[in-house]
């Protein structure tokens, strides 16, 4: 008993360690980046909120042009929604492989996620092209302007998500599952799932409610 006390005391004395009642290092949480990124996503959420509000106000101002009921192709939207939902779960699988520390699995699932995202973008571009050739481009009416602004912004986010994902694939190939890459994977995970949440709003508020008589 006394030995331990003695040992401890001399030990701290020899090391020049004194009792300290303040923190000597900065006390940031280890993963402060994740909180910062979450706050960025929340600010992104506000951008989408204003675009949704714009669409909500202008969404029925057709200016004698085509209406949502005439333009929207629900099977195509259902297809798009399926692709995005699937890409969410495949990203989830990538995260699970990351927890197991399997680099190959992470990269395969990430690649599948990227392909699903690219499929989503392809279908969306096809839809936009189709609308514009039908003389229902963003200049046709306030409804179409707000539609293109909202859905286009979401599409741009997906595009940048894919760019990020491909970059991350190269980083993973080069450095493996280091702490930095894990952090990046977590951030992209939040970004990707967040885009899925925004898409829920888009398909409900824009497409499904747009075709209601």
């Amino acid at each position: 008993m006394s030995e331990i006390t003695h040992d401890t005391l001399t030990g701290s004395a020899e090391d020049g360690q004194r009792l300290q009642f303040h923190e000597t290092t900065e006390h940031h949480p280890e993963t402060g980046t994740l909180l910062g990124f979450w706050i960025y996503l929340m600010s992104d959420c506000l951008i989408f909120a204003s675009l949704f509000a714009t669409y909500g106000v202008l969404g029925r101002s057709y200016a004698h042009g085509p209406t949502g009921q005439e333009l929207f192709d629900l099977p195509l939207v259902a297809m798009n929604t399926t692709l995005l939902l699937l890409s969410s779960i495949t990203y989830g699988f990538a995260m699970l492989r990351m927890q197991m520390g399997r680099l190959g699995g992470v990269m395969v699932w990430l690649a599948i996620t990227g392909l699903l995202g690219a499929g989503f973008l392809g279908l969306e571009l096809y839809e936009f092209h189709h609308l514009i050739t039908e003389d229902a481009g963003p200049g046709r009416s306030a409804f179409l302007s707000s539609f293109f602004a909202l859905v286009g912004t979401h599409g741009l986010h997906v595009l940048f998500g894919i760019v990020w994902l491909v970059t991350l694939l190269f980083q993973l190939k080069k450095h493996g599952l280091i702490a930095e890459n894990r952090r990046r994977l977590f951030c992209l995970s939040m970004f990707w799932h967040f885009l899925d949440v925004v898409w829920i709003g888009v398909f409900t508020f824009v497409y499904l409610m747009g075709v209601l008589p």
């Binding site: 280890e30 994740l34 629900l74 779960i89 989830g92 699970l96 952090r183």
Partner: peptide, 28 residues
Amino acid sequence: HHDDAPHSTFKGYMTGFVLSVILTAIPF
């Protein structure tokens, strides 16, 4: 290094996926 990052499970992701498929299919 106590990791603050959330720990995911296969069950959690699958539960979320099945629920969201159902909640998407019904409105469509």
